[in-house]
Nucleic acid binder design. Structure first.
Lengths: 336, 336
DNA sequence: GCTGCAAACGTAACCGATAACGATTGCAAC
DNA sequence: GTTGCAATCGTTATCGGTTACGTTTGCAGC
């Protein structure tokens, strides 16, 4: 009966077992004060009708639901990685996870989306939420953890050490002997983009290399945005010998453009990215990049939220995870 | 106030606006019968308190929630593709999507999981559900659509034409001149695995090539399961000149094993997969495969469920989507 | 036989929102 | 002035499950 009638409710069970719904509730929740024979009757009635408690009704009555939420506005590949991390962190914890996705604004993103849906879930359906969004100013009556949040986030958060990662990336190029290093930035206004640019500047400054702002292009993390920027940088007579892009997606586009222009990578141009997405490992040549494990971000966020909900979180409100330089074929020493 | 107190309810709004909750409800739902000035008052109170309707309370009271569910036991990459398809199908439809993921059994899958959670959601929280699971025997009081279901599914479903796809794959190898073609099967008991094996046998039979059962290895769709099978097949003195694997994940492992054994692909061995996952396009050599767009499966499932919920579905109960042969570098004519 | 106590179970209020219904008011038509 | 209709808004039952509280029952102790 895939298209059966009304769902089985607790009162259906109570009627069949000849008891009140209160007793059924006590049996379902394993509470004290029900005789063994009554428990047996009720259980048999539950079995017979195929009864399952309604998440909605329970949520409404109880303050705790043992369900955590995850709210995100889009479903990029990295979101899936975060998700896996969260699920592993919640594994065997007794918490289930609900991911709420809105259809109306998919693609045409508008700020405030998460806020609305957070309010619709928290306090009722979920005991707490993980928010994967670059925007901030979130509030909720239940605990919140933001993954990769905006700069001014007051909400507990988990993010990668973008500053150190970017610094390491550029230091790698400097160590190889590069001095003219271009940079393709991410969308301004995002914490990650800012820190990565700061890391670029810091590494150069620390090495005593003056910063040439004409070597900096403003992308927006969208791979396509890197194409015209790379084309411009690489068409210059005094083109850079290396380019650091604030994301792997943009970095891979840089490689593409370089090849189009007849430049070899890494022979004529070294390229470093940031993120370590799957394509980077499989690309030819492999892309040297900074690994920020989205899986780990999700895992930490899950761990943190779980503890926050249980009221036993003792760690810092903001977690910063280390990054790792992954050297592949896209970088080498510059030609003399 | 990220950690505020109790959530704002409708009666809070009603109190502040000096009206009853009924009036607030009418304003929220844009119903007729409220004076313009009252509407203004209520709206201002809503704004002031930051009120949002509770999904839970609405679900309990109403029969319709405009929320659809998606239940899956694990989060593979292909699940994410399905998800994207579903979300696009639901875009601008007024339906939101909830994905329910259980933590306790993540990894240690047990049958019946979906059934329990379907019961907890349907009839209350969701107006209908998409189920991504190889198991069947599902029931629900609201419409259901299964993606890639088991053989005996009575539930409306969407799946790829596995039989035709597999037949095409093997025909491609036959056309190239191969006659000794190995096969690595998927987990038995799954509809997809069965149909793909049937396609393998059909193509050979149609071509008048006798079936050598010693060339068939039983994997389980898990890439790792293909390793020992490939090793055995390729260590034989009369090793096959081509191998068709029931999934890309397994096919890529076959290529790895072949290389380990000093065989070149496609020189010494042609390999065909099934699925067309991202890695297949990026692998070296590119993997010839059968494209079954998980995105499209999800998209069709979303469209179907939406119509089923609205009661205006006129199509067939079971949708079978065509597949497409994608020829890449991993296949060529056998050496003489 | 009466009291005391605890186990066992039912009753009813409650969670937040909705909708059927009833009550009130305003306004126009006769 | 009265009637009728429609607009407006409050009251209340209701959804399914939980829980504080009250009632009944059984049994031991005096």
């Amino acid at each position: 009966m895939a298209e059966g009638g009304a769902p089985v409710t607790m009162s259906d069970v109570a009627r069949l077992a000849g008891v009140s719904t209160a007793t059924v509730s006590r049996v379902v929740n394993g509470r004290y004060g029900v005789s063994a024979s009554t428990v047996a009757h009720v259980r048999s009635a539950i079995e017979q009708l195929g009864y399952e408690t309604s998440l909605v009704a329970t949520s409404l009555r109880r303050s705790r639901t043992n369900v955590l939420g995850l709210v995100t506005h889009s479903f990029q590949p990295y979101t899936a990685e975060v998700l896996k991390g969260v699920m592993d962190a919640l594994s065997q914890s007794g918490f289930d996870l609900i991911i709420y996705a809105n259809s109306d604004l998919y693609g045409t993103y508008s700020e405030g989306w998460e806020k609305r849906h957070l309010a619709r879930l928290s306090g009722t359906l979920t005991d707490g939420c993980i928010v994967v969004t670059p925007w901030s100013k979130l509030e909720s009556s239940t605990p919140l953890v933001a993954v990769d949040p905006a700069t001014d986030s007051t909400v507990p958060s988990v993010m990668a050490d973008n500053l150190a990662g970017a610094t390491t990336a550029v230091e790698h190029l400097l160590d190889l002997g590069h001095r003219r290093i271009g940079f393709i930035a991410g969308r301004s206004g995002l914490a990650a983009a800012l820190s990565r640019e700061e890391g670029y500047r810091k590494a150069l400054t620390d090495a005593g290399v003056p910063i040439d702002t004409t070597l900096i292009g403003r992308g927006d993390f969208n791979p396509a945005s890197a194409v015209p920027l790379a084309r411009e940088l690489l068409s210059r007579p005094d083109r850079p010998t290396a380019i650091f892009a604030a994301s792997d997606g943009m970095a891979l586009k840089v490689v593409e453009v370089a090849k189009d222009l007849g430049l070899s990578v890494p022979g004529d141009l070294s390229v470093v990215g940031f993120d370590n997405i799957l394509e980077s490992a499989l690309a030819d040549p492999g892309l040297t990049t900074i690994d920020q494990s989205m899986y780990r971000l999700g895992h930490e966020a899950g761990r943190m939220l779980k503890s926050l909900v249980c009221g036993n979180w003792r760690g810092p409100r903001h977690i910063v995870l280390p990054t790792r330089l992954v050297v592949r074929g896209s970088t080498t020493a510059p030609r003399l």
